[in-house]
Amino acid sequence: MNLEQLLSRKPDAETLASWLHKVPYARFLGMQADVTAGEILFILPENKQLIGNPSLPALHGGVVGAFMEQAAAFELVAKMEQPVLPKIIDFSLDYLRPVRVQTAYAKCQVTRQGKLVANVSVTTWQEDETKPNATARAHFLIPGEN
């Protein structure tokens, strides 16, 4: 199955797993996803190799950003009528609490999708969804005939 066919599949848990598997860096980070009633939960399982601050300890801030960026990209793909891999334009990340060395979760919201550009926001938390560790906002370029 080529990438275009793969991206066009119904975005259920199995499809999300195949997307994440297809992206080497997402696989390297060990990203997973769960889908409940159409809502995608992105998961970054605990992994000591992702530590960026050994004294706290906490995950590398850049890794948290990478996880959130990938989550935003696939949330967008899942919502597209003609799915393609979007290209990141810019990414703004606010760190609210240290991301501890345990599983992290992310949910995304496609705030606006135009023909050329989409805006996606992401929230990451660990134990309590109401206490986010980081929030982010991304703009993506949608490649195609536009």
């Binding site: 990438l3 297809k22 860096y25 980070l29 990478a66």
Partner: peptide, 16 residues
């Protein structure tokens, strides 16, 4: 790599 078709490095790795 972030895009398996082009082999381009993932934006997240640049962020790291």
């Amino acid at each position: 790599v972030g895009n398996p078709e082009t082999g381009v490095i993932h934006g997240g790795a640049v962020t790291v």
